[in-house]
Design a protein around this nucleic acid. Structure first.
Lengths: 236, 236
DNA sequence: GTTGCCGGAGTGTGATCACAAAAGCCTTCG
DNA sequence: CGAAGGCTTTTGTGATCACACTCCGGCAAC
């Protein structure tokens, strides 16, 4: 059972938006593993609301391909990642996110860069402690505090959608290999480039960062596909 | 009143999927103009269903930014296009769609190419008759019969989402300037390149095709923004 | 004639009920 | 002991109702 609490303090926001945010966050953080099946009613009960707002939130997530509804049977679950699909996600990420970083460069302030340093510090701390969740959270914060500066809503949402789809699997891969063997990221490079205002360098570093991270997952997918050609479905 | 009929023959598909398809098609074809406000109940009544499936379809369209829910007032409407937003849409289209065309090249069959010729013929016919709707339909068919061959679901859906957002405005711009002054497309170039199997040439032609088409709209937006800085909202 | 107000109509949202279909469990038979 | 079939539970879906809020109409006061 995946427990996801609802922020009871925010009264003006629509319930289905709150539900959506919670679920989206859980997915990006990989708190819901691939092939995990969920149900409207169980989620609703866990959140203390009626199934109605959950339906709308889930409908959005299905539209973003962060969840899927199996065609023949009617179960709702987190999609699995095929190699083909992951390749497309990698290609898309390697285009949008460097673009976002490029656009953000001119708009970075001293405070923004400081925040990046903080996020990276948290990331290193989590790494040294072997804290996968903390690592993923800090990594997400690092990337999206850059993207938020780009002032490009469309690209930002595209990046978010891509992370929604990659999240569950990223958690599995990273959790399996531990934080020790994670590839060196390019965050320090980016921070230095932001201070120089070198947009091209940032674009390149971001592309490299994503390329290496996603390649790791691609290798994991290939290995898994080879090891277990017809994997038995796990209990939901 | 926008009348959108529902296919009553397809019994096995979910109602909200049918509603979604109808609305999406209407939006891509520009049958619903920007800033046009719609309502769940009126749409439901027009489709002969309860508001329920419309809610779910609309929720998807909102997630894809093909519709928006105004924050202060709670009306549902087709979003307007700002210059900033259109620029992002152009950039995104110029990346995804050439990529899709590139991927499709190796998978094109003789029949696929024949279909492209047919679509282009319909397009020319519509152009000569000044039939804006026919033109947009044929243009959509031409592009998406290419994209469908790419076997890249993620990119395909991205392209579809982008068209959903551009559609309403494209119709306005094209309708305003008539079919006579539309820029020469690059369809013949693409067909020839497909026959040669020249993927790079196709990529370039597709990029040029989109670039010129979207530039037209960009000019229209700028002109409109200059002419009417604070346009009065039109009656819905 | 202009301005302010107020009431009805219409909006999206959430909850609840009904229903067909699939899932999962348990019994039962070989 | 293993597998197949039936039955209960659970699932997503659609319809309907209630509610708070917004918009738009006419009426009244100045």
């Amino acid at each position: 059972m995946v427990v996801i609490s609802l922020d009871t303090a925010s009264g003006d926001a629509k319930m289905h938006d709150q539900v959506y945010d919670r679920l989206a966050e859980a997915l990006i953080q990989g708190q819901i593993p691939p092939l995990k099946s969920v149900s409207l009613r169980s989620l609703a009960q866990g959140l203390g609301v009626s199934p109605m707002p959950v339906r709308e939130a889930v409908r959005r997530l299905i539209a973003e391909k962060a969840l899927e509804l199996q065609p023949s049977n009617k179960r709702l679950r987190v999609p699995d990642l095929t190699e083909k699909r992951l390749t497309q996600l990698m290609t898309a990420r390697q285009w949008v996110e460097p673009e976002l970083a490029f656009l953000a460069t001119a708009r970075m302030t001293r405070d923004s860069i400081k925040r990046l340093r903080d996020d990276d510090a948290k990331l290193m701390t989590a790494l040294s402690k072997g804290d996968v969740s903390g690592y993923m959270q800090a990594n997400q914060d690092f990337h999206f505090s850059i993207y938020a500066r780009a002032d490009a809503d469309l690209f930002y949402d595209m990046a978010r959608t891509l992370w929604l789809q990659v999240g569950p699997f990223m958690r599995v891969v990273f959790g399996r290999m531990g934080t020790v063997h994670l590839p060196k990221d390019h965050h320090q490079e980016m921070i230095a480039a932001f201070e120089r205002g070198d947009a091209e360098a940032i674009k390149a570093s971001m592309a490299a960062d994503i390329h290496e991270g996603m390649n790791l997952m691609l290798d994991a997918i290939k290995a898994q596909a080879q090891a277990e050609p017809t994997k038995r479905r796990k209990r939901g």
